[in-house]
């Protein structure tokens, strides 16, 4: 019974998502495209940042490697082989990055991941200009014939990312990762090979993030290093996961839905307000405020807080029942 009940919500969500494109305009399809894409990358980040508790602030590195691999190869070897290549290359690149960064802990790990992503941004803009066209931008071959079909590509990607992270998170590996998050030294003493499992989480995470980057690039049509390697991408992924709830299965999706809709609504609502200046900037100002408030008052995120509240309620109801019967 419990198993069936836990499937109700995902299946309902899937039905809604499948109906949306037949009723929504192209504008809203694009919003959903970004929701699915960033939710998928959020799921991927959640493996490392949420379950294993390693705050990566440089996931743009894998996002950008995936995007540029796809962009450079798609016209030569075909669209789907290029997507595969993007997945492979971002995974392979995660090995040295992980070996370097995982030697560090806490804030030093976070700083190292930022430095790696920034390094790639500078290299892609300047040193590898011949390859990437630098800030001038690189044309990217589309993945599907009709732009509205990207909705399905992103939805498929998100489902894949969810399935993989859900499988991993609820398996033995997931519990090992959570043990590492709670106390890495203790995890090590109870014979968990912590470097191996952290690297494993990062490789899977990088694979999915690279695929996300490739889809992002294909939908955009033309990319420059700042679109895919920037800190804005890294932060976006982290913030939506924090808002939804790190280390929860659905957190990144909830965060992505709220952030995309809120920022879209804000931008439309504020375009006429002159004294605010740039409405985009005001939206991001509120975004920052939201992060501050979530960290201060709701560090478990939306899904985490709701789950805690629900579990507490169930426990209270049960304890009332048992005492009533026992007395």
């Amino acid at each position: 019974m419990n198993r069936i009940r836990s499937w109700i919500l995902p299946v309902l969500a899937l039905i809604v998502f499948a109906v949306i494109p037949f009723t929504a305009s192209f504008y809203y399809q694009q919003i959903f495209f970004y929701i699915f894409l960033f939710a998928g990358v959020g799921f991927a980040w959640n493996l490392v940042g949420g379950y294993a508790g390693q705050l990566s602030l440089g996931h743009a590195a894998f996002f950008g490697i995936g995007a540029y691999t796809y962009a450079l190869l798609a016209q030569h070897i075909g669209v789907w082989p290029a997507l595969l290549a993007a997945a492979v290359l971002s995974t392979v690149s995660a090995a040295p990055i992980g070996l370097i960064c995982f030697r560090l802990r806490g804030p030093y790990f976070a700083l190292a991941t930022i430095a790696v992503a920034q390094l790639l941004l500078v290299l892609a803009t300047n040193q590898f200009k011949d390859l990437t066209q630098g800030a001038a931008g690189l044309l990217v071959q589309g993945m599907v014939s009709d732009p509205s079909l990207y909705y399905w590509v992103a939805l498929g990607f998100m489902i894949l990312a969810f399935a993989i992270t859900a499988l991993l998170a609820t398996s033995k590996t997931g519990y090992y990762l959570m043990a590492i998050r709670e106390d890495e030294d203790t995890a090590q003493t109870v014979t968990i090979n912590t470097p191996l499992y952290k690297l494993y989480a990062l490789l899977v995470s990088a694979l999915l993030t690279g695929v996300g980057g490739a889809i992002f690039a294909a939908n955009l049509g033309t990319i420059q290093p700042n679109d895919v390697f920037s800190g804005a991408i890294s932060n976006q992924v982290v913030f939506l996961s924090i808002l939804g709830g790190t280390g929860t299965l659905f957190g990144p999706l909830v965060g992505a839905v709220i952030l995309e809709f809120a920022s879209d609504w804000l931008k439309n609502a504020l375009t006429g307000v002159a004294w605010l200046g740039d409405p985009n900037a005001f939206a991001f100002f509120l975004y920052g405020l939201l992060i501050v408030l979530v960290v201060m008052f709701m560090p478990a995120g939306i899904v985490g807080t709701l789950t805690k509240w629900w579990k507490g309620r169930v426990a209270r109801v049960q304890s009332q029942r048992t005492t009533a019967a026992g007395v």
């Binding site: 508790g53 602030l57 991001f284 975004y287 992060i291 960290v295």
Partner: peptide, 18 residues
């Protein structure tokens, strides 16, 4: 440390966009 980083990153985002 993770909460320090996230909170101050949020403050930074606020200042930048202000």
């Amino acid at each position: 440390d993770m909460n320090h980083i996230l909170l101050t990153a949020g403050v930074g985002l606020m200042l930048t966009n202000l």
